[in-house]
Write a protein that binds this DNA or RNA. Structure first.
Length: 342
DNA sequence: AACGCCTACAACCGCTCTGGT
DNA sequence: TACCAGAGCGGTTGTAGGCGT
């Protein structure tokens, strides 16, 4: 990409961490691109001495760089365990998947992609994935497509456009699951491409959780099922008569606690319909004692969403922040993570 | 060939967090 | 408890190189 700045720019490093008494030293600190010589110095020092105080490393390695700059260079470029090159499709999907759960927590996402750095992932997201999703959304939002008045439904737009909206960081969340299928639909797996699982908070902020991408629906749905402690399925979601109905959205008023919350509705996509082996059926199971308040199980055993329900374990005004979630715990249980073949 | 626009990504910047005193 | 320094994080910027005209 950019050529190394061999000449070197000697500027004052604005690192606020630098002791103000070291003004003379600061004036010598270089900024900008690293030269091969600097890389070699830092690499050699790190391999000999290992990681320590970055300010000391910068000084002891004979680098006219601030510790912060050295740290960044090591982490993002020099580290021996870095995996160079383009992101594989698997990595890409995992990034999308994790981003739907973690948001812009690049370091946490990077921690689950061996050999990749947060900076790399962040750049990849901002330059490639974000744009691609935007393009997808625009192409799906053509006049012909949007003349359907249900397009006013943000959930539908988000899902059909394949666009990702960041999940609101706080408030209660509902989970929506979209399927272009109905119980009577017979489809190939390709018909599931636009299926998404949406999280919605009470302010109608939506976020996909997780995004169900082409050819990955089973995997992602399994991830979701793991997060929500899913048990065997008993029915297939149908539709309801309101704005969400056409796309078969399941709305669950509150999701929390993940493992022990009795008030959640399990959801899952299975490899086969319980009756028909339809490979693309959404299956739901009652996890709540209030299940029948929210869903009707008809004579065919099909589940229909009837109404939004109250709260068993959490009163309506109670808010929950993403930060309070046990993200580590959640991610530890995602069965789809091992699919990455590193 | 020259020019301009676009993209990818390295690096910077500013902020928060954390641990030590 | 307050303060400080270092580490770490996420957002943003700058620019080399690719690509189209």
């Amino acid at each position: 990409m950019r050529k190394p700045d061999h000449i070197g720019r000697e500027k004052v490093c604005n690192n606020t961490n630098i002791n103000n008494n070291n003004t003379k030293e600061m004036l010598k600190l270089r900024k900008g691109l690293w030269s091969p010589e600097e890389d070699e110095k830092l690499m050699n020092y790190m391999l000999r001495n290992g990681q320590g105080c970055w300010t000391d490393i910068a000084r002891n390695a004979g680098l006219q760089r601030c510790g912060k700059s050295c740290r960044l260079r090591w982490i993002n470029y020099l580290r021996p365990d870095l995996k160079r090159g383009a992101f594989s499709p698997q990595e890409e999907q995992l990034i999308i998947h994790l981003h739907s759960i973690l948001g812009n927590r690049w370091s946490q996402i990077a921690a689950r992609l061996p050999g990749r750095t947060d900076n790399e992932i962040k750049n990849f997201w901002n330059s490639t994935i974000k744009k691609r999703l935007k393009v997808n959304n625009i192409s799906k939002s053509s006049p012909n497509h949007s003349k359907d008045n249900t397009s006013l439904d943000p959930c539908r737009d988000v899902m059909e456009g394949g666009m990702f909206m960041s999940m609101h960081d706080h408030d209660l969340m509902a989970i929506c699951m979209e399927s272009s299928l109905t119980s009577t639909t017979t489809t190939s797996s390709s018909s599931m491409h636009n299926s998404s699982m949406i999280m919605k908070d009470r302010d109608d902020h939506f976020g996909i959780f997780p995004p169900l991408l082409q050819n990955n629906i089973t995997r992602d749905a399994n991830a979701a099922s793991s997060l929500f402690n899913v048990s065997p399925c008993i029915g297939e979601i149908g539709s309801r008569g309101d704005g969400y109905g056409d796309c078969g959205i399941l709305e669950v008023p509150y999701m929390t606690g993940m493992e022990s919350d009795n008030n959640k509705v399990a959801s899952r996509v299975t490899d086969g319909d319980a009756n028909t082996n339809n490979p693309t059926s959404y299956m739901f199971e009652k996890k709540s004692t209030n299940f029948n308040n929210h869903f009707n199980v008809d004579t065919d055993g099909k589940v229909k969403v009837e109404e939004v329900v109250g709260y068993e374990n959490h009163w309506p005004g109670e808010s929950l922040k993403m930060g309070e979630w046990d993200i580590e715990g959640l991610l530890a249980n995602i069965p789809s993570l091992p699919y990455l073949d590193f």
